[in-house]
Amino acid sequence: MFIAAMVGVLVTMLLALVAAVRGPTVYDRILAVNMFGTKTVLLIAVAGFLAGRPEFLDLALVYALVNFIGTIAVLKFARFGSLGRDDHRGLL
């Protein structure tokens, strides 16, 4: 049954990839990329169980973390065109 979960996750990744390529606005792309990231987290978790060595879940945690940071960076860039500033213009 891990296979079924894996197939589901892979299909979702494909759909997210299509959405990321197609997305008319920047925010659609960000949304799709973010979703793609969470799906890779699931992919790693399921793949660990599928391969019979589920000890490497630290990896999935790193993916989730990095995905969040990437999304925030992209969003900040999309909104303000800069990464370092916080001149009380509101955050994201």
Binding site: G8, V9, A19, L31
Partner: peptide
Amino acid sequence: FLVAGAGFCVIGGIGLL
């Protein structure tokens, strides 16, 4: 749970498109 989760994922992916 696994199958339902995978189903939700796919449905969400379709919805995204």
